[in-house]
Design a protein around this nucleic acid. Structure first.
Lengths: 226, 226
DNA sequence: ACACACTTTTAATATTTGGTTAACACACCG
DNA sequence: CGGTGTGTTAACCAAATATTAAAAGTGTGT
């Protein structure tokens, strides 16, 4: 993968988190730079031009939003990929975050695998030749394929991997009816064989989380996203 | 091109050839599935319903011919486009191949450019026979096969499976009168036996949903779409 | 290595809905 | 008028899906 050797700038005022995240990133072969405040962050960013900048929202002085705004203003940095770190409680902050130009939101506490997965996705985006908008919007619903996140009416909803992949599939062609076979094939792959009810259960969980209206059933045919 | 994103099933017991061909196909953006024996091939084919199936003739157990025969027997697969791969020496085999219902013969060794060209041609054929789009328009009516819905004067109407299949049949040849027997055969299949009134009831439901004008009756003959 | 939390799958049960039927109404034609 | 073919309606039934809870599988942190 091209995403190896990428440089990442981590900005957080809590040394533990900085340590934890950079440990995980370095283990994967990324080139990690750290800053514990906004001033240093910008200074380093301008020097290094990192492929990805990860900002903690809650910081003294210039907080994450401020830094991000500054980055977007800076001619040389404005195309950087910026991700925010934040305690998952604060829903409002996400909207604010996207407003100032964030590319992703990662909720704390972070699990290593999820974190690395997202970083990878973000770097892919940066390299990405084509970018067909990885966010899908439907009235009050936003589905972000890269960050495995769904935001419904401003609040973030966590979906498991399978749930998310299923939702992505359905929402990739709103209106199109996906047969069970098609769903099995595209979400589980050709080899895997699981019981029929498995899909129903996942569908149910998704409906439970994002509401009943979005996924509809046509008996004998399949499911579709509306 | 419509032929992009097509799914192709490659079947060969020689891993090298499989690898070589799928590499070339994937490079062109095709969705490639592989199988190294007939059993797997049929299993995958039934799940995936590939647009094109490429079979090596010389394989242990069920050889290419056997697989092709089975495909032609299978109700769901019999309309697939099937191409054979074979060492070009064996001329006899071609006759056998066309007998079992092959659509094309590709001689080994294959050159990538020739191979891709043929694949393209075969996929065009597959699309050509079918409708160019899965939407059918009639003044203020749109029938969308993909979403099992009908849009009438801008508003979306949901149809059940049978209703939709019936409507698809009638609208596939506007003006043509379909006899009851023909409808039974094409919508219900040859085995299923249901009462005469069943059709009427479905016709009624469709009329109820999309309006009375579109489906007309000719007593003693059948129904047609106007 | 263990316990814990979380996801995925299974299995068993309930519920829904679409397809079918049957009974009857209507229309047309000799 | 009867006869034939179609329209209409409501009720039934079976198949498809929904819903649960519990088991099996996964990864994570201690």
């Amino acid at each position: 993968m091209e995403t190896q050797n990428a440089s990442i700038l981590l900005v957080d005022d809590e040394p533990d988190i900085l340590e934890f995240l950079s440990y995980n990133l370095q283990k994967e072969g990324y080139n990690v730079f750290r800053a514990s405040n906004g001033i240093d962050a910008l200074k380093i960013a301008r020097k290094v031009r990192p492929n990805l900048i990860i900002l903690d929202v809650m910081m003294p002085q210039p907080d994450g939003y401020e830094i991000c705004r500054e980055i977007r203003r800076d001619e040389q940095l404005k195309d950087s990929v910026v991700a925010f770190l934040s305690a998952k409680s604060e829903e409002v902050s996400q909207i604010e975050g996207f407003k100032v130009g964030a590319d992703d939101f990662i909720g704390k506490p972070v699990k290593p695998r999820v974190f690395l997965f997202r970083v990878q996705a973000l770097l892919r985006r940066q390299n990405g030749v084509k970018e067909t908008s990885n966010r899908i919007f439907f009235d009050d619903l936003m589905i972000d394929k890269e960050s495995y996140t769904v935001v419904k009416a401003g609040i973030t909803i966590e979906l498991s991997k399978k749930e998310f992949e299923l939702l992505i599939l359905l929402s990739s062609k709103p209106g199109k009816v996906f047969s069970r076979d098609e769903i099995f094939l595209k979400v589980w792959g050709p080899e895997v064989i699981v019981g029929e009810r498995t899909i129903d259960v996942h569908i149910r969980k998704i409906r439970e989380k994002i509401g009943l209206g979005n996924i509809k059933t046509i008996k004998g045919v399949g499911y579709y996203f509306a």
